[in-house]
């Protein structure tokens, strides 16, 4: 089994092919107590593109995603082994503060989780705690640009002081994306961002993701193979805690190397 596939080097149809990978994982093992959830995952993820993690439920794709911004640190019984590098720097090194890491690796969750505050405060919270704005005008500028980028500005421009929880599901998810963008991350992790949304809202989010990939490295966990095919340039298939196969989306979906991948994408199990 070829677990050390490097999409960045194998990819031929992306313009930034020779670039060094944005995220680089080597021999990542994750344990929940005594139970091992991930086995020796090696993966390179390239910048300015969308990478999808697919696989059946419980295969470890979300666990791996949460390793990239050290969200697993918040789970007491979770232990991570191996190296994950962001721009060549080990994010699990002693001197790395997870707070700084999470500011540059944003995250969007499965269920939209805006703070029970106003729309403005939702977006402004990150810049505020990180001190990204030196005055109120700058702050509202950041809020506006983030909301514009998330494609939400026109819908909420006149009601920024209304609670973020009052928006529709799709709008909430875009608000959450705006909130993540507001702290100027380099990588955005998305954990099944559309699974709680209707098809129209899903389409809007997908468009948004497509827009965002010009500026960010986006890593997305999805259960919808159609979505992975539509949105992502690279796809990684996880199965039973192992990374089975990774490569350009087109190749994974049309000509997978591994039989398990083929079985999964053709719907024989999952």
């Amino acid at each position: 089994m070829d677990t050390s596939v490097s999409p960045a080097t194998q990819t031929t149809d992306t313009p930034s092919a020779p670039e060094a990978p944005k995220v680089r994982a080597r021999k990542v093992n994750v344990f929940y107590g005594n139970k091992q959830a991930l086995f020796d995952v090696n993966l390179d993820i390239s910048d300015r593109s969308v990478t999808s993690f697919i696989g059946p439920s419980g295969c470890g794709k979300s666990t791996f995603l949460r390793c990239i911004n050290r969200m697993n640190d918040t789970i007491d019984i979770c232990r991570v082994e191996g190296d994950i590098h962001l721009d060549g720097k080990d994010i699990y090194a002693r001197d790395v503060d997870p707070v700084i890491l999470r500011a540059s690796v944003g995250m969007v969750f499965q269920k939209p989780n805006p703070f029970p505050k106003s729309i403005f405060d939702n977006v402004a919270y990150g810049p505020r705690i990180h001190g990204l704005a030196s005055n109120p005008e700058e702050l509202s500028e950041i809020v506006e640009t983030s909301l514009r980028r998330a494609g939400l500005w026109t819908e909420v421009a006149d009601r920024l002081d209304e609670p973020g929880t009052g928006l529709s599901g799709g709008q909430q998810q875009r608000l959450v994306i705006a909130r993540a963008i507001a702290v100027r991350p380099e990588v955005i992790l998305m954990d099944e961002p559309c699974s709680a949304l209707d098809p129209i809202a899903t389409a809007r989010i997908e468009e948004l993701i497509d827009d965002l990939r010009n500026n960010y490295c986006i890593i997305m966990v999805t259960h919808s193979m159609a979505q992975a095919a539509r949105v992502s340039q690279h796809t990684a298939f996880f199965h039973l805690g192992k990374l089975v196969e990774a490569g350009p989306t087109e190749q994974i979906f049309t000509n997978p190397n591994d039989k398990r991948t083929q079985d999964y994408i053709t719907g024989r199990f999952g």
């Binding site: 707070v99 700084i100 944003g106 995250m107 969007v108 989780n113 507001a182």
Partner: peptide, 13 residues
């Protein structure tokens, strides 16, 4: 917990 995750996710301590 989603509220905690949301805050931690954008780098709140």
């Amino acid at each position: 917990p989603s509220i905690r995750e949301a805050a931690l996710g954008i780098g709140a301590s």
